[in-house]
């Protein structure tokens, strides 16, 4: 596992091992936000940004603090607190230094604390024993992969408004079916690169 080139992991996290389409993480906000393209793009950027930062911080804390102290079993607790604290911190920094970015990402940042994709990526990086560079590549790649999925979903859903969907399938039902078809399409990338 440890010899895989970080770049391969980066590509695999976007296409073959997409965190939404193959690990089912981040579904709640995916379904709620993917109604409009603009919001999806904003949330996608915010998730990529936060994921890159939190996975780095969590990797450092796990390997430099928890492991030497023998406190690995506390990692759920610590990770969640780090994510919550970092999101708060990022929000304050962005608000202070870049009001335009804050206007674009601001409303999405609090939502991200409970996004399972963030915690999921951090846990996977620990469970799979990634090195530091591999973790960063995996975090950013997963963020981009998640954005790719939500943006394409939003684009499809905007056109879906004009088509005739069976009454009982409207809304969530058709979204799930389309996600399934999208996951099928993405599984066509399998074999391009491999992470396992």
């Amino acid at each position: 596992m440890s010899e895989i080139n970080p770049f391969i992991i980066f590509i695999a996290a976007i296409f073959t091992n997409n965190i939404l389409l193959s690990n089912f993480l981040g579904m709640c906000s995916f379904i709620a936000i993917s109604k409009t393209l603009k919001a999806s793009f904003g949330l996608g950027c915010a998730v990529t940004f936060v994921m890159g930062i939190t996975i780095t911080a969590n990797w450092l804390v796990f390997h430099l603090v928890l492991k030497p102290l023998g406190l690995e079993y506390l990692y759920f607790l610590i990770f969640i607190m780090i994510i919550a604290a970092l999101v708060q911190f990022v929000e304050m920094v962005v608000e202070r230094y870049s009001p335009t970015l804050y206007l674009a990402l601001g409303i999405f940042l609090p939502l991200i604390t409970v996004n399972c994709a963030i915690l999921g990526a951090c846990l996977f990086a620990v469970v799979r024993n990634y090195t530091f560079m591999q973790s960063i590549a995996y975090g950013i790649g997963s963020g981009i992969g998640w954005s790719l999925a939500i943006i394409s979903m939003a684009a499809i859903r905007q056109r879906l408004r004009f088509s005739h969907v069976p009454k009982a399938l409207e809304g969530i039902g058709i979204t799930m079916i389309i996600t399934g078809i999208m996951a099928l399409a993405f599984s066509g990338f399998a074999g391009v690169v491999s992470m396992q």
Partner: peptide, 25 residues
Amino acid sequence: NIMIMPPGAFLMLGSLIWIVNSMGK
């Protein structure tokens, strides 16, 4: 094979919601 791959779960959940919604109606 498709059923054990991730798409299977999405398709199953979608169909299940469909069935339950039409029953609910």
